[in-house]
Nucleic acid binder design. Structure first.
Lengths: 205, 205
DNA sequence: TAGCGATCTATACTTTGGTATAGGTTTGCC
DNA sequence: GGCAAACCTATACCAAAGTATAGATCGCTA
């Protein structure tokens, strides 16, 4: 039975994916909330077949975490999982030795198939991932935006109020205002409506 | 008796719909105030036939909540319910595995029929739900708008403030506020950003 | 170790947005 | 003339958005 270690700082995501993998397939799934936790677990167990690392997670620092994990455990296969990263990140990850790139937009079935594919020794990237349209999410005009500001912008594009965004991101309304203010300045616009329009016109989100 | 789990953050909406469904049909209706609540309930109960998720609700993050729910509970049917979402969102939801899309503009009767339809294994979208046909610019959802309201909406889509719109249209700011308020009500949205997005998505202006 | 940048929070404030009520004018129609 | 609808304005109020400052933690970097 293959041992899979899933590391993601979002409890719900991590646990639901883990639970799903356990139920639908003969996988032994372990979980960790960050890179350090994952490394500790692997140091103790030593027979992990596949390590799945969330791209945005404490300890990762971009793809440094991937390199670290590869160096410490050259035998284990490593896949990068992300909800926001683009084609460039995926390619960079593969260049640095990742065995797979797993966007969180995959269907559950496809995830399972991708995992089996990787476990069989193949290297996986979704065929249709970031194909033609240059979604310059992390480059271009949106490069300066921090992760939180990007998330805030995404909510803005749904027309949510600061209060709703705060609930959604589980932070205080003041903090949302901070992110909004900074993001407006970075985008060079003067209010939230313009920010939403700006992002939509560039086909972000 | 089918088990239905209805998740919506608006207490009044949620409880009244639930009560209605209980009275008119042999439905066992559970409720939750957000996505996490719904997931916890489902983790405990495991025999939910239909999960109805409000599109704008803590934890949903667009359609990620739908994907999560589908991944964690691949057997249960999931429908997305929304008061503001458009055809694009509905299609995206169906693409990601939703079994139905339920605008809050449905009549109670149609809601019940839609639920029965979905429970029978079919996939439901209202046949007349906002097509993207550009012909419907001044008809359809924008028919009720007066000339001034339409002009105001146009300025809104530029991200202008009320004061700027007032100068632009050579009327007082109060008047602009009036037009904005009325136009929000007619469009069924709750703030200017949603109105701008609404118009843009329908390729008006 | 020191420092930087991202994140979060708090307090306090001003401006803008949105609602409510109560009028007013003009246009066109029956 | 009477009536309705669109349009405009005024006053007032409350909520939401945005600004400013300051202090705090955390992870990474030099």
């Amino acid at each position: 039975m293959p041992n899979i270690l899933l590391a993601d700082d979002h409890d719900l995501v991590r646990d639901t994916i883990a639970a799903y993998l356990r139920t639908v397939e003969e996988f032994n799934v372990l979980t960790a909330p960050d890179l350090n936790g994952a490394m500790e677990l692997m140091a103790g167990i030593d027979s992990i077949d596949l390590l799945i690392l969330d791209y945005n997670m404490p300890g990762m620092n971009g793809l440094d975490g991937l390199v670290k994990a590869r160096e410490a455990h050259p035998v284990a296969k490593v896949a990068i999982m992300s909800g926001v990263a683009n084609r460039d990140v995926a390619n960079a990850a593969m260049d640095r030795g990742a065995h797979g790139f797993i966007p969180k937009s995959l269907t559950a079935d496809t995830l399972v198939n991708a995992i089996k594919f990787i476990l069989a020794g193949e290297r996986y990237i979704p065929f249709d991932f970031g194909s033609n349209d240059p979604r310059e999410k992390t480059s271009g005009e949106f490069a300066n935006l921090s992760a939180r500001e990007m998330q805030t912008l995404e909510k803005l594009c749904l027309g949510l109020s600061n209060k709703e965004i705060a609930r959604n991101l589980d932070i205080q309304e003041v903090t949302v205002k901070l992110h909004v203010k900074n993001l407006l300045a970075k985008l060079g616009v003067s209010n939230r409506t313009q920010a939403a329009l700006f992002a939509k016109e560039r086909h972000l989100f």
